[in-house]
């Protein structure tokens, strides 16, 4: 039986296209200091640090965790780097939580970051190998054909993606840390934005951000004694599947379905739409909201778009999704 894990402090940077005022060390430190302050702690209280980011080549710094040890107050303490590409923000927190749940550490600081202004991401993630045709589509070119397949298969109305884009940008207006604050965002504005990777419009894409986020995790004793009400980790799960195999369902991947099912079983959730109050989900392009609603069991296959259309996923809906503004409003890849 694993031990309980509490989240007793959270912090994030103000996100922006370019944080000119901060180095990478400065970015991670801003988030970490805010999390420590939230937890009523300082560096001395932390036993171990778990840091995550996407591929090193994005900023061109090999193993950046080594030079971040001082900025994160963990000289002489255990430090772990997590790297699972675009999912690394979530995986980093999972690894940190497992250290507490396994009883190895009592108080762990976990930080994830990306400083995309110091990189050319498209170049960094596109090696030219002889088994693939040369770079043909850029970043959104990977997702756009899958979205087209979803629209064709589900017969969703064409404006669903636009609705998600407007909703998440309006949510971001309530979040002072969000990168994008589009005060006058509207259906017309999104619809009239350039079609970059048809069917994906400019304003249906995530931005490219500098930023970091951090959490202080604690064992049960520290959670009960925390100055603010803690959030308890009830369940965690992780699954993966190969990128290419015959019959792979790219619209509704099996790994996602099985991961959600395992998570709900651990947490005792029977009906996710009824049992969850709110969800923050990785939605890099607007159409992924209805697709992930299906993949994560909130809606039946080909029905997820109805939740968007009915306003169920809106801030005041019965299943609010990405109240922070989500990835569509702030996107440091590794965080």
């Amino acid at each position: 039986m694993s031990k309980r894990c509490a989240i007793i402090g959270v912090g994030q940077t103000h996100h922006a296209a370019v944080r000119k005022d901060l180095s990478i060390s400065g970015v991670v430190r801003e988030a970490a200091l805010r999390a420590l302050e939230d937890a009523g702690m300082d560096w001395r209280d932390i036993e171990a640090v778990v840091v995550g980011k996407a591929p090193d080549i994005i900023e061109g710094v090999m193993m950046p965790e080594l030079f971040l040890a001082e900025a994160l107050g963990c000289v002489g303490k255990p430090m772990f780097r997590v790297h699972t590409a675009g999912s690394v923000g979530g995986s980093t927190a999972l690894v940190a939580a497992h250290l507490v749940q396994a009883g190895i550490h009592k108080r762990v600081l976990t930080v994830a970051f990306e400083k995309q202004s110091e990189s050319d991401t498209t170049w960094a993630i596109t090696p030219n190998i002889p088994f693939q045709p040369p770079l043909v589509a850029g970043a959104g070119g990977y997702f756009a054909p899958i979205i087209r397949s979803y629209i064709e298969r589900s017969k969703a109305p064409a404006d669903i993606g636009i609705r998600v884009a407007v909703k998440d940008r309006k949510n971001a207006l309530r979040n002072p840390y969000a990168h994008l604050h589009l005060e006058d965002v509207s259906m017309e504005m999104v619809e009239n934005s350039p079609m970059l990777w048809d069917p994906i419009r400019y304003l249906e894409c995530c931005p490219s951000s500098d930023g970091a986020c951090a959490m202080v995790l604690s064992d049960e004793k520290g959670g009960d004694a925390a100055p603010k009400p803690p959030a308890w980790v009830h369940a965690s799960a992780m699954r993966s599947e190969p990128t290419m195999f015959p019959g792979r369902n790219q619209i509704n991947p099996r790994a996602g379905r099985e991961c959600a099912a395992a998570l709900y079983k651990q947490a005792g959730i029977d009906d996710p739409r009824k049992d969850f109050d709110v969800a923050e989900i990785y939605i890099p392009f607007s159409w992924y909201e209805p697709m992930w609603m299906e993949n994560l069991g909130f809606a039946e296959e080909n029905q997820g778009w109805k939740m968007t259309e009915e306003g169920a996923t809106a801030f005041d809906g019965d299943m609010p999704v990405n109240c922070s503004g989500g990835v569509l409003s702030s996107n440091p890849i590794g965080a």
Binding site: L135, V136, G140, R148, S149, L196, W197
Partner: peptide
């Protein structure tokens, strides 16, 4: 053709 996208954005390394 199972699915596709129309690329309408210039980016580094583009040949088309």
């Amino acid at each position: 053709v199972t699915t596709f996208c129309v690329v309408n954005i210039p980016f580094y390394g583009q040949v088309q």
